[in-house]
């Protein structure tokens, strides 16, 4: 294989890795939007909090002398998912539920306020400087001709792919098979009717926030292991990227969020590979503008039908 193709393969691997974490975060945006038609701008901060909890737990476990990597990762996963879900649930309860039924701008502003609050809360409690972790999962495969270009696919990247895939499989099963998943789908089609049929829609909405937060926490864990650093401000950019991914795929559609995340990740990787890497955000958000101009309902979203 020629050098250019190997280089391209490498970028695709990198792009899909980042893209799958965008997809995980984007699902949280899209599910909440699908049910209550609101953009939860504090969602990126949940991802950031998930990252911080991962750091704190892993550092703590390493400090206690634990050496088993799977056990450390498992404990970090459970704790960060639990705590992030608690945050997700609490945010909905205190900042959005009291505002339900008002003008839709009001909860949006509340969400931005919540986002600023959480960011500063972490700055004050954890400090604003980067926190770092030693690499936990190292090594990988390389292939290609060493004299031309060597493609590397690390164990960490594989871990992200597998973890994302398993999470999404779990979510798909939950949505399509479980009783609560059924109620979630019903709410996203017609929340008024679902309520009228006796479903406790407040509980369905709370569940949606909990699931979204859990997925963001998983993304937080994966990316903190991948990058090895975090700071209180990572939630902002990650949130915007995931939001872009959700809009790209069609907000309200879960497969759309996954597709949008992957496309965005690959686009960024390719931009960074062939242009100065500062341009990757420019391209990502240009994509958002183009989609909003030419296909506002997104790739897999259904065009809004005016109800009679």
């Amino acid at each position: 294989m020629s050098e250019t193709i190997l280089y391209l393969i490498q970028q695709l691997i990198n792009g899909l890795t980042i893209g799958s974490t965008y997809a995980l975060i984007a699902i949280g945006y899209t599910m909440v939007y699908g049910i209550i038609g609101m953009i939860n701008f504090a969602h990126g901060e949940i991802y950031m909090i998930g990252s911080y909890i991962t750091f704190i737990v892993i550092a703590g476990l390493l400090g206690m002398g634990m050496v088993s990597l799977p056990l450390i990762l498992f404990i970090a996963l459970v704790i960060s998912v639990l705590i992030a879900s608690t945050y997700g649930w609490t945010i909905e309860r205190v900042a959005y539920r009291p505002l339900r039924g008002t003008n839709r701008l009001i909860p949006l502003i509340s969400a931005i306020g919540m986002s600023i609050f959480l960011q500063n809360f972490v700055v004050l409690s954890q400090g604003s400087r980067d926190v770092a972790l030693p690499p936990m999962i190292s090594g990988g495969w390389t292939f290609g001709d060493p004299s031309l270009f060597e493609v590397s696919f690390s164990y960490m990247q594989l871990f992200i792919w597998v973890a994302t895939f398993v999470t999404m499989l779990g979510l798909t099963l939950f949505i399509s098979r479980s009783r609560m998943g059924r109620a979630c789908r019903a709410c996203s089609e017609d929340i008024g009717m679902t309520n009228l049929l006796g479903v406790d829609t407040n509980r369905v909405i709370a569940t949606t926030f909990i699931i979204g937060a859990a997925l963001a926490a998983i993304a937080g864990l994966l990316l903190s292991l991948y990058y090895g650093v975090a700071n209180p401000f990572i939630g902002f950019m990650a949130g915007l990227k995931a939001f872009t991914a959700a809009v790209l795929g069609g907000i309200g559609s879960i497969p759309g969020a996954v597709l949008g995340g992957l496309i965005l990740g690959v686009t960024e990787a390719l931009t960074a590979a062939y242009f100065p890497s500062e341009y990757k955000d420019v391209v990502a958000f240009s994509l958002l503008i183009l989609i909003l101009l030419f296909r506002p309902s997104g790739l897999l979203g259904k065009p809004e039908v005016e109800k009679v």
Partner: peptide
Amino acid sequence: IENMLVAQHR
């Protein structure tokens, strides 16, 4: 059938 089951969620 899902429509029928959602109505019995409660």
